[in-house]
């Protein structure tokens, strides 16, 4: 299994370079950095995030932690312009991919989302498509050429830890899978387009420990080439996979969420600056 992954890894590195959009600048060669500055978010007139600044460094895994409803998903969605898909949603602040403003004139919204992939909190495979077509859907949607499709399908499914379960039923509908399998299918679908940054919103919340481990291994491995931002409620997971960490919190009811503390994961978990962070990571919250 692990030799397989290593082999795939090699293969993928070459391909991801080939597939990276040329005009996005030289940084496409290595991993990309993603920098959010003073990001605030609104749903209608209700503000849910206030001046969140976070620098997600190239080739590292950044974990977003914090209690439910504090705006982790919302923040994550501003990073690839998915926040604006919700009617009435507004945003202030800037987000830069390798120094280029993703909300600026130079980049189209589809380009941004192609470069910055996303795995959603709820599994959302395309119900009208087979498992195989689901994996290939991103390539078709973005008009990229896939190279050898079978290779892309197998490699992506392997990375998502789903290959062995579905290799004999690739033509079954995507909805015929269990919830956890669907989530891994969605992970495979995001990986198939070789994004430069991958945003993952609680990707393991519906997974059993074994699949969780496979996904975590994939995350750690991928981090050599791409930048990953992962939302998780699992403190152990945050420590296992991430090197940086940001703690979100709504201080008072009806107030917008803020980043209380961000930095090195090890420091944040063992020696945080803020008392509230310590309370949260040690489970003494509330």
């Amino acid at each position: 299994m692990s030799t397989h992954l290593d082999h795939d890894q090699q293969h993928r590195t070459n391909e991801s370079v080939a597939l990276a959009p040329q005009h996005l600048g030289p940084a496409a060669q290595g991993a990309s950095s993603l920098t959010a500055t003073d990001v605030s978010c609104w749903f209608g007139s209700r503000q849910v995030l206030e001046r969140c600044s976070l620098s997600m460094e190239p080739g590292k895994v950044t974990a977003l932690i914090g209690p439910s409803g504090c705006g982790k998903s919302t923040f994550l969605r501003t990073l690839n312009r998915m926040h604006e898909v919700v009617p009435g949603a507004k945003i202030a602040g800037t987000v830069e991919l390798d120094g280029q403003d993703i909300y600026g004139e130079d980049l189209g919204v589809t380009e941004v989302r192609m470069a910055i992939g996303m795995v959603f909190q709820k599994p959302n495979p395309f119900p009208s498509m087979s498992i195989r077509d689901n994996v290939l859907a991103g390539l078709k949607l973005s008009g990229k050429s896939a190279g050898d499709k079978d290779t892309v399908v197998e490699e992506s499914l392997r990375r998502a830890g789903l290959w062995n379960e579905v290799k004999d039923r690739l033509h079954d509908g995507g909805m015929s899978l269990s919830g956890g399998q669907q989530q891994r299918l969605c992970i495979a679908r995001s990986l198939a387009v070789h994004p430069r940054v991958l945003l993952m919103d609680e990707p393991c919340s519906a997974l059993d420990p074994i699949s969780t481990r496979v996904v975590e291994e994939t995350v750690i491995e991928l981090a050599h080439q791409i930048t990953i931002v992962i939302v998780t409620h699992n403190m152990q997971q945050a420590q296992r996979v991430s090197s940086q960490c940001a703690f979100f919190l709504v201080e008072e009811q009806k107030q917008p969420g803020r980043i209380v503390e961000a930095g090195d994961t090890a420091t944040l978990f063992t020696n945080p600056k803020d008392q509230r962070t310590l309370d949260y990571v040690t489970g003494r919250f509330g």
Binding site: R113, F120, N124, P125, F126, S128, A137, G138, L141, R189
Partner: peptide, 27 residues
Amino acid sequence: APRDVCEAALGLGGTRWGMIRTVILPF
């Protein structure tokens, strides 16, 4: 048509028409 699946299409870098074609029309 389920909104979260529509978002999946957009999130993969699909255009609005791409979303209509892959999610809304089949649905």
